[in-house]
Simulated assay, not measured.
Amino acid sequence: MTPVLIILMAATILLEVAGQIAFKMGLSGAPEGPVWRKVLTSPAIVLGVAAYAVELVLWLGVLSQAPLSIAFPLAALSYCGVLLASRAVLGEPVSTRRWLGATVITLGVALVCLSA
């Protein structure tokens, strides 16, 4: 993997995590009412959509340089990132079982990368 590809992949993972956290914050902090109203009026939701838009462009850059069979498993690290960010940013409780699951995902990604 080239340094540019590593940077692109890391950026897509970080943007995925940022988008998910923004979505959660936008829906949690909005006044009571229907979900569609929260979606249309929340700046955090707009920020999450923007993060996803940039991620899409960067992801296409990743796919132009890496095999899908390597890139997609690497993208699974976003699950681990969301777990960490939901704990650190949102203060959500994370069970030992979820930490173990994230560890298994990380080990699986490492196994895929070592076979590349």
Score class of each variant (00 low, 15 high):
V46G: 11
L47C: 12
V57H: 05
T41V: 02
V54K: 11
E32V: 01
V62Y: 06
V46F: 14
Y52W: 14
A50C: 10
G48A: 12
V49T: 06
L56R: 09
I45R: 01
W59K: 05
G33A: 06
L47G: 10
P43I: 03
A50V: 14
G48V: 13
V46M: 12
Y52T: 10
L40V: 06
V39Q: 03
V54H: 14
V57K: 08
E32R: 10
V46T: 12
A50E: 01
L60R: 12
R37V: 03
I45A: 05
G61S: 08
A50L: 15
A51L: 06
E55C: 13
L58N: 11
W36L: 08
L47Q: 03
A44Y: 13
A50W: 02
L40G: 00
L60A: 14
V49S: 03
A44T: 04
I45M: 08
W36S: 07
S64T: 09
L63F: 12
V57T: 11
A53E: 15
V57R: 09
L60Y: 12
P34L: 07
S42C: 04
V35T: 06
V57D: 04
V39D: 02
L58D: 10
V54F: 15
V39R: 09
L63G: 07
A53Q: 15
T41H: 02
E32K: 09
R37A: 04
W59I: 01
R37P: 00
A50Q: 00
I45P: 02
P43T: 05
P43D: 04
S64Q: 11
V39M: 07
A53C: 15
L63Q: 08
E32I: 00
R37W: 12
L63A: 13
E55H: 14
Y52I: 14
L56M: 13
W36P: 00
L40E: 01
K38Q: 10
V39N: 05
I45Q: 03
L40W: 09
V49N: 05
K38H: 05
L56I: 10
G33C: 07
L47Y: 02
A53T: 15
E32T: 01
A51F: 14
E55F: 10
A53L: 15
E32M: 02
A44C: 07
L63P: 08
R37M: 07
T41N: 06
V35M: 09
P34W: 00
G48F: 13
V54E: 14
W59V: 06
P34F: 02
L58Q: 11
T41Y: 03
S64D: 12
A51I: 03
Y52F: 15
